[in-house]
Design a protein around this nucleic acid. Sequence first.
RNA 1: GCGGACGUGGCGGAACUGGCAGACGCGCCAGACUUAGGAUCUGGUAUCGCAAGAUGUAUGGGUUCAAGUCCCUUCGUCCGCACCA
Length: 819
Amino acid sequence: MTGNPRYNGAETFEEWQKQWQLEDRYNFRTIEQKWQKIWEDEKIYHVDIDNNKEKFYALVEFPYPSGAGLHVGHPRSYTALDVIARKKRMQGYNVLYPMGFDAFGLPAENYAIKTGIHPAVSTQANIKNFTRQLKSIGFSFDWDRCIDTSSPEYYKWTQWMFIQLFKHGMAYKDKMAINWCPSCKVGLANEEVVNGHCERCGAEVVRRDKEQWMIAITKYADRLIDDLKDVDFVDRVKAQQINWIGRSEGAELDFEFGQDKLTVFTTRPDTAFGVTYMVLAPEHEFVAKYMDKFENPEEIKKYVNATAKKSDLQRTADDSKTGVELKGIKARNPYNGKMIPVFISDYVLMGYGTGAIMAVPAHDQRDYDFAKAFNLPIIQVLDGGNIEEKAFEEDGPHINSDFLNGLNKEDGMRQAIDYAVKNGFGRPKINFKLRDWVFSRQRYWGEPIPMVYCEHCGWQPLDEKDLPLTLPEISDYLPNDNGDSPLAKATDWVNTTCPKCGKPARRETDVMPNWAGSSWYFLRYCDPHNDKEFASKEALKYWMNVDWYNGGMEHTTLHLLYSRFWHKFLYDCGYVPTKEPYNKRTSHGMILAENGEKMSKSRGNVINPDDIVNNYGADTFRLYEMFIGPFDQTAMWSEESLMGVYRFVGKIYNLFKKVYKIEPSETDLRAMHKCILEVTERIDQMKFNTAVSSLMTYVNYLSGLEKIPAELYETLLKLLCPFTPHLAEEMWTRLGHTASVVVEPWPEGNPKMAQDNVVTLAVQICGKMRGTIELPKDSSEDVVKAAALKLENVARQTAGKEIKKIIIVPNRIVNIVAA
RNA sequence: GCGGACGUGGCGGAACUGGCAGACGCGCCAGACUUAGGAUCUGGUAUCGCAAGAUGUAUGGGUUCAAGUCCCUUCGUCCGCACCA
């Protein structure tokens, strides 16, 4: 620092005053643009591997570059981790904070169908717009590492990874029922189905069987649950993933049915003596197999057809129980030899367990409802509840259950399974709700699946040296009537030769879902320009894991689960050094419009970040996003609150005029250290709103001073730097500094310096506040007692009463118990 | 039904291991000042009461010298999953 910082190069006070009075109001537009250019020119946020420094990898979910541009929700997450990244940088870490674009997706393709503009063209334009917007907010991204999942240099590796999945038996082709829009004549991704309706045309979605590429994520179900214990994810994320994977322990039991064994999965084998009927899913193979043995085939066929026509929505919306008995064949309960009727009903799903259940109406509400509807017997096998009214699903001693009688649920289960195992009709079994991942999309704008079908060799992967398999240019993006991908029409591209035998063969024409590219993008950031590997071992070893990943709750059971799985697969293959990709996962709340509604184009209540940056500046925008409310909770946008933050920013600018190079007082230092400690701690805890209020309290203190010691103001700027980097840089240089405040060391707070040497104790009588006393810190109990009793109010309140007890909490409270 | 979060002034929200409820901001009220600006500055602002004081953290109860915080009850809101056997 040179000279009196207050004069900032000016010879006299008058000269200095004139200099700054020209722009008495904070001119955020020129100042913010100036610093953004300097940061970019000097590549101040660029990072490389530096083995002398501890790394810190901060990650936010990269956006899909939509035509609408940035939403105010995006910067909530980006600013939060920018604050964390900037603070870590000032604390001496080598910080990787990257940004990129998840650029494959349906909107670009739909736009192409409407306008004929190639998705690559519109996507690049959108990326350009997003980049401009992100830069205007002053995030400290290392733009040299920016990635685009739709570029061949990137998706080459997505395809390479798919081939690894295939080679390890993790990718397979299977006929699957998919969501089909009969009006658009197109298969839809789950994310395009809104409450059972097509997002584009509103028609109800039906099921249709199609050959699909599947990824065997279920093989990792156990590990995806178990390894959650080793990572620091917020509880609701863990809970939701566990819930979604839906692990349940039970047993498989074989019932005799015709010449076959009818296997069911149950979590309650102990209730086997209460089975009064069985139910198959209408799609169960035995229904067709035994059709000519049934006495009522017409009735059965009618029900099967009716079910097939129903959408998933219709099938689940109505919880009244329907079904048809399979007359002519009964099943035999292996526990007691009883012959029981068998039904088909759509409340049993083919996709879970074995597609068949043993029904215990006394102890399962769904079975109970069905039994009531069909007038079937209900046999109670656990004592308790009132079976006349509803099923009893709790624990109790077993009754009517032969060798299980008297046992509780837990013991009963064990005994029942043991018995089944010993007699060869059952085995313990764990089932999951999680299904394998449907990986095909009948679309154009996605990664081509690098597979070729040969009549002689079956499905063959491309040779890895032939990657990337690039998307061919086409002019017609509409899928055809058969539900084939638009790529099917690019016959020159589709017709190829088998990589194995060289004979004519056909390429896969479906593309990957948009979750593919995002399943490993955090690895690419470590080494984004590598054309030999998806990332070098060295880069992965240095940068991984992601230390802190923030993103939306809506991705918990999609992207977050997919990418954890994908990473584990790569780990098993030896391509990445760690089992889990993310050490810590946090989640931000949504930002709603002022009236509490969701922001949407149709409601016309969307706040455009560009307007906020233009009207109030990036710093105000950033600071407001942090001040808006608890980070993990939903918040409502408020222009008036934004104004408060805007005033605060202006206040800091104005305070500069009162800065002198003088020594701070003890009280000054106390305020300063208190602020340092609070801001530091609260950033780490993501309590950004209270971190900002600490800064406000500190600024209020500075405002009350006639002259502000330079040290206090400099500390303020350092603490502000993560939140309002442009303002901090500007004022920092006006103080005469030549280096950037961004690289200044983060201030150290001293708890001792932050403490008052005089404390105010609350004086209570029987827990009610009656006054306060000011005493030196750590005064002895006798001193505290004496001072408290001396209070006039205390004397009055205790008059005529006996003082029974005096409780003293050091430096906080005195409670006089009197009666 | 299952799982998760939550309920505090006119509003958004603070309150660490139980220890002065309402920090900080908005709004509102009063005043100052002015280059009339999206100004700025100062003071006030939980409720009732002139006051002393009383009452207050969804509800009712409990533990404690002391409860927004811990335990139980009831009510309500939001989010995710949902005929998963």
